[in-house]
Simulated scan of single mutants.
Amino acid sequence: MNKIYGVPLSPYVRKVLFTLEHKNIDYTLQPVLPFRCNEDYSRLHPLKKVPCFEDEYITLPDSSIICGYLDHKYPQSSVYPSDFREAAKARWLEEYADTAVAEVMLAYQFERIVKPTLRKAADEDKVTHAGVHQAPAVCRYLEDQLRASGYLFADGLLLCDIAVAGMFLTGRYGGFVVCGHTYPKLEAYLDRVWRSEAMQLRIVQEKPILENIYKHFSTTREWACDMTT
């Protein structure tokens, strides 16, 4: 059985769950909070991050490594473009989402969603810095990469789309909103991905977790949003 360790709200766990669901592969999700795990988990993932993957053959950390492994093991319905040049570009965009986009969006998530659950006050200066000084460069770059319609590549909804739009979804949960006037292609693209069947499945499963956070931690309520369609 394929085991995924992590929590659904993690944008990195979301990538792995999409890959498994895209390929119709059975799995079980073992709840693990990053950096707050026991010694048993630290033996699986020495960095104590999520996700981690385990099957009958191998134990792997890191979402990109896991998804690459799954795509080789189960080649049906690849999560990468069919053209090798576009596949390389897709992996770069996935990496860009996991690093540059993450630096912005995880600031919103950590300060406004995670910190309240730890009984800590959000540092709005960090949120402002991410939104004002870092987000514009990220949005401009992605605006230049996008087609007028559809997804990042002609092959349809792929892992790179989930990586990019999923990271923006994480920021949206913490109140980040793309300016459609300045970045019209990016705004339209995110809306398309978020409304896709694959992403709606993820959003529906994440919704009860968010609602519980919004309910019990008053400072998070102003960021509450319903992304289901």
Rank of each mutant, 00 (worst) to 15 (best):
V104S: 03
V104G: 07
V104F: 01
L106V: 14
Y108Q: 09
F110S: 09
R112P: 03
R112N: 06
I113E: 08
P116M: 05
P116E: 01
T117L: 07
R119W: 09
R119T: 05
R119K: 15
K120S: 07
K120Y: 01
K120P: 00
A121P: 09
E124N: 08
D125E: 15
K126H: 06
K126F: 02
T128Y: 08
T128L: 12
H129D: 05
G131V: 08
G131E: 09
G131T: 07
Q134N: 13
A135G: 06
P136T: 05
P136L: 02
P136C: 02
V138W: 03
C139F: 15
L142S: 03
E143Q: 03
D144S: 15
D144K: 15
L146N: 03
R147Y: 10
A148M: 11
A148L: 10
Y151K: 01
F153Q: 08
A154G: 08
A154K: 15
D155C: 03
L159K: 06
L159V: 01
C160S: 15
D161N: 05
D161R: 02
D161C: 09
G166P: 06
L169W: 15
L169D: 05
L169I: 12
T170R: 14
G171D: 05
G171W: 06
R172N: 14
Y173V: 11
G174W: 03
G175V: 08
F176M: 12
F176C: 05
V177D: 11
V178D: 06
C179W: 09
C179R: 14
H181I: 08
H181E: 14
T182P: 09
Y183S: 03
L186C: 06
A188D: 10
D191C: 11
R192Q: 04
R192L: 02
W194Q: 13
W194R: 12
W194C: 10
A198R: 11
M199Q: 12
L201H: 12
R202E: 07
I203T: 04
I203V: 13
I203A: 02
I203P: 07
V204H: 13
E206C: 10
E206F: 04
E211R: 07
N212M: 12
N212E: 13
I213W: 01
I213D: 00
Y214T: 00
Y214M: 01
K215T: 13
